[in-house]
Design a protein around this nucleic acid. Structure first.
Lengths: 229, 229
DNA sequence: TCAAAAGTGTTAACCATACACCCATGC
DNA sequence: GCATGGGTGTATGGTTAACACTTTTGA
């Protein structure tokens, strides 16, 4: 037992709320715990921060180790330190939320890490620790932020149709949007690059594929432009 | 040395960026450090979290102990855990930002805690640890949030004039606003209660005093209303 | 030829902006 | 009576919201 301190210190963990989007649902990835406490229960991916490890790096590492996810938009969410959140004692967790392109990660997450599974946000099981609370805070943050920051694109493939984008907002915000007005607004921002490609293998008229222009967004943002859906 | 652990653990601290507003400036309170490290340097008020102490409670306690401030709007800002932020070793800090009514606190902070002083945000001295970074993040957060959440009122006395409110936004956002348009917009939200009182002892026509109607704001917010200046 | 989704314009209501003068008060 | 800030209205342009049909494609 080599680590001795004059004052009591907390354990430090990171936890990640990873969102993905498929054709019908907004989903979150959960891990079935193999060890106590809460053995057999579902939990957010996460774990202990290594000594002097940057927090975001720890979050990325745990994500990789537990779900196989390597590329993700990741942002700090909130730090939870309440007394009884971990039965093992004083444990503080820095929570992150992540947005991934489900099209890329769907397979990995259910094969490499066989105990990881995607759940629709409307059907989350009982979770270990205070992870339900963390999940709720993350969902609230996502719903609030997606409106006025262009983070929704992180949930779509590189190339996407306007209908996919519209459905994304409809799913996350739980409200229908008018197709014509949505297209007008989005296109008028000048943030989408037309790839001049179209969908393949669809049983109807193929839609144009667009790409989000990050570089242009940065330019506009610096000039005071505010993204808003 | 009674606390021994199998794995290395970080020290845990809280730090507070406390904003106040006077006639001319947005200000932040700083503490002159009396002990190493960074003895003699200015720093954000803050200190070690006690075992199992809720994080927000720790922030409020440190604020009280170091500045005498007891009533403040307090919100978690960000958690900083980079390797070299504290020369004593691995130290993670949960940063908060606070908004106080300077009219109430101006005296306390410069008497009770004689080493606490208010600095205009445009003239912050070199700070201890990574506190400059924390301060910048806090200022950015305040500027972003004040536009679309009614937190500005936390910086004003209970009863305030429309001109005071307008000046608040002009100071924080660093841009001038049109008086007539500002009044129209603010009053049309229906969030201000006319106290039917007026300023006293002013050498010109006395302005009406208003009060922010928190209750009404909650009602409207639940119906989907979005505050925006 | 049918089904399924893509794509497209106009109008009316509302909201944001720009802008200048009179009013009340204390000194 | 003058200096200081308080308080007020209108017109214009731009933005948002409501709304329905035609086009393309593959099966």
């Amino acid at each position: 037992m080599p680590f001795t301190y004059e004052y009591e210190r907390p354990s430090l963990t990171v936890d990640c709320v990873v969102f993905g989007l498929d054709e019908t649902d907004l989903k979150v990835i959960l891990i079935e715990r193999g060890v106590p406490p809460f053995q057999g229960k579902w939990a957010l991916p996460g774990g202990f921060v290594k000594p002097s490890e940057p927090l975001e790096e720890a979050a990325r590492r745990e994500l990789q180790e537990e779900t196989g996810i390597e590329q993700a938009f990741l942002e700090q969410l909130f730090t939870f330190g309440d007394k009884d959140r971990d039965p093992r004692g004083w444990t503080v967790t820095v929570a992150y939320y992540a947005l991934v392109k489900l099209s890329d990660h769907r397979i990995q997450a259910t094969t490499d890490a066989s105990d990881a599974k995607w759940f629709p946000v409307a059907a989350i099981p009982a979770l270990a620790f205070d992870h339900e609370k963390i999940f709720r805070v993350a969902l609230e943050r996502l719903r609030g932020k997606v409106r006025y920051q262009p983070i929704g694109f992180e949930l779509l493939p590189e190339k996407f149709t306007l209908t996919q984008l519209q459905k994304l907002y409809e799913t996350i915000l739980r409200q229908d949007l008018d197709k014509r007005n949505f297209r007008k607004k989005i296109l008028s921002m000048g943030l989408l690059l037309d790839t001049n490609e179209t969908q393949q293998d669809v049983a109807h008229r193929a839609a144009r594929l667009y790409r989000f222009d990050r570089h242009r967004y940065e330019e506009l943002r610096q000039k005071g432009f505010n993204f808003e859906v």
